[in-house]
Design a protein around this nucleic acid. Structure first.
Lengths: 252, 252
DNA sequence: TATATGCCCTGATTTTCGTCAACGCGGGAT
DNA sequence: ATCCCGCGTTGACGAAAATCAGGGCATATA
């Protein structure tokens, strides 16, 4: 579960059509239980709904940029976005991919410290920062929820550091696939495949590698019979055991 | 400011001598303003003092281990500790060095997710987990403080990811020195030197390098005249500009 | 239909950093 | 004092991954 700038939650279609509609939208939000809004009692959801506005963005569109004034708290929605930071010469590090229910934490700083870009057409909720903070003040469980998420995010970030600092290219790729698989299994328990909505270049920038190395890594996993590359970016994991062991960094 | 398992705050000598003393210790704590305790009104510090116990550890001693049940919230004290995670085959990634006032966040999970080890003899406060949570419940500003710190830690963690994933060995070393310098300058504004309390091996495991590469990196910075290596692990930064530029990852 | 563009893969070569090995130094123990 | 042992440094070598280059395929565009 990535935490960076916003929480991702699916807005249902009706709510989206009448954007800024106060009453019904948020209470019926498909991703409500996934997001911080899950901490709100149903009866009080109108309080949230009253400050939210709903937006959509096309693939490749930038939702917010590093360095911008943090005016809003984003609660992202449908499908996936990537969060990244750039070095002056253009080197890029993707710090996370966000899915529905994930939280965008940099809302607590004055300026955004990363850039967020849509991987696919995406729907998201926008909370004016001050108002969102007021709602959090009013509903203590929401604050607790935020703290719990932040804590989880920190643990995930440390895991990510181990990966970036100490794993080999092959282990990084295996780790990436296993993380995606575990996410898929939270939705569909018996799933044995993942869909890569991001490009090889995105994966490379997430793992601290080059696109070529990522490509070769996938090929090698394929020739070893551990994965299968299907159409539409779908990857079927054929040997979960082996992949998990590689991902964990076993001594071979 | 690293966040992992505890907050670091300096206990004054008296307080340390009568460990577990309820009344005076915490209110006079030298690091109180640096730690989460700073959010407590002075009058209520006895509430904190009533649940704390004070400990000390020698250099190299392990304060807590990855996988242990998280029974306590640590609030570390004097000088420095390192926080790390291990891969099955022994590869190590240090996720942070903690200084007085830093917060150890993994208190919100059921088991510790990293190991914490003293770099030098260290004093620390120990809060029983449940009781600490109760105090946080009672004092809302403390919860806010925790959330703010967690948020800052996440930003720092993302910065660390950029470093691990996208910077060269030389840039990593420069970044490390600059981070230490900035910390030194928060205490002594005009400082132009830092003291390395950790070994080359620790630095390597923090930067995702080997000791040899770290050593060569220091040597190169020295021969370029940007730093000076003095006795006692002291490093004098002679060209802050150059070092900062290298650390930032400028295109050369 | 032809052309262009972006993405993915693969090969050849280079470079950075890791590995292996050796040595000096200083502090602690005997 | 002498012996260790851990730490830091340096050199020679090797390997993993980056860089450079090209080619195929699909989708978009003219």
């Amino acid at each position: 579960m990535a935490m960076a700038y916003a929480a991702l939650s699916t807005i249902n279609e009706q709510a989206d059509r009448r954007a800024n509609a106060a009453a019904t939208g948020c209470a019926n939000c498909a991703a409500r239980d996934l997001s911080v809004c899950g901490a709100m009692p149903s009866g009080d959801m109108s309080r949230v709904a009253s400050i939210v506005s709903h937006r959509r963005a096309d693939a490749g569109e930038t939702l917010l940029s590093e360095g911008d004034k943090a005016m809003h708290f984003l609660n992202i929605v449908d499908v996936t976005v990537k969060v990244y930071k750039l070095l002056p010469d253009g080197r890029r590090q993707i710090t996370g991919f966000l899915y529905p229910g994930d939280l965008l934490g940099l809302a607590f700083n004055d300026t955004y410290t990363s850039t967020v870009e849509a991987l696919t057409p995406v729907k998201y909720c926008l909370f004016p920062r001050r108002q969102f903070e007021r709602v959090v003040d009013e509903f203590r469980p929401m604050e607790k929820q935020l703290l719990a998420r932040a804590s989880n995010e920190l643990v995930a970030a440390q895991e990510q550091m181990v990966m970036l600092g100490r794993k080999t290219a092959q282990e990084k790729i295996a780790s990436f696939l296993m993380a995606l698989l575990q996410r898929a299994r939270r939705v569909n328990k018996a799933s044995d495949s993942v869909v890569l909505t991001m490009t090889r270049s995105d994966i490379a920038d997430y793992l601290g590698l080059t696109t070529e190395t990522v490509s070769r890594g996938f090929t090698r996993l394929k020739t070893e019979g551990w994965i299968e590359l299907c159409a539409g970016g779908k990857v079927r994991i054929r040997d979960t055991e082996a992949l998990a062991e590689l991902a964990a960094g076993a001594d071979c």
